[in-house]
């Protein structure tokens, strides 16, 4: 009984406390760098698209709002022919970023994406691709994966020996 009255009194006294609400549009909140906001596609340090169209982000997406199609340039480098995120479905869970093996897909601190027309929330690759590396500035997937692309032949990766001469007779 006393505890109920105490509870009532305590809650009543909150009337005179400082409010914790940040009055957002007038007052800008602090956004931590690991905020999960608008999704972007980043580029390699050398400017190539980081996305290799492996489909893992699409598979990880719990609301299935990512779709893409893999394509390959003449040297064997994979890239997405199209890459579409339907932000009207996106729940900003960040699973795509977690799933991405090349740090291509990243969530940013931008959250002000409201639109009057839902159709405008469908972002294509042109809308997603940025010109920098975003997080993980030094990483280049093809330097560590054993696939040859333009400017990196077999055996020229960071962790690779030159290709074996199969017809060699040395033991």
């Amino acid at each position: 009984m006393i505890s109920i009255l105490k509870a009532l009194w305590t809650v009543f006294m909150h009337l005179f406390r400082r409010k914790v609400t940040v009055l957002y549009p007038e007052e800008r909140p602090h956004i931590p760098p690991r905020w999960r906001g608008r999704i972007i596609l980043s580029r390699d340090p050398d400017g190539g698209e980081r996305c290799v169209a492996c489909y893992l982000c699409a598979a990880a997406c719990p609301v299935d709002c990512i779709s893409l199609q893999a394509a390959e340039d003449e040297y064997g480098r994979r890239y997405p022919e199209f890459f579409r995120i339907n932000f009207s479905r996106c729940i900003f869970c960040g699973y795509c970023e977690e799933a991405c093996p090349t740090y291509a897909i990243q969530l940013t601190t931008d959250f002000e994406m409201s639109e009057y027309n839902r159709q405008n929330l469908v972002y294509e690759k042109e809308d997603l691709l940025i010109s920098g590396t975003g997080k993980c500035p030094g990483y280049n997937f093809y330097k560590v994966a054993g696939l040859s692309i333009k400017g990196k032949r077999k055996g020229e990766g960071e962790n690779e020996l030159p290709p074996v001469d199969v017809k060699g007779l040395m033991p």
């Binding site: 699409a58 598979a59 997406c61 299935d64 709002c65 990512i66 339907n86 469908v122």
Partner: peptide, 16 residues
């Protein structure tokens, strides 16, 4: 079970 992109495949044509 893991089919992806259900809400994005047709989104470019119509978001509904």
């Amino acid at each position: 079970k893991r089919y992806s992109g259900r809400t994005a495949i047709r989104a470019a044509m119509d978001v509904h």
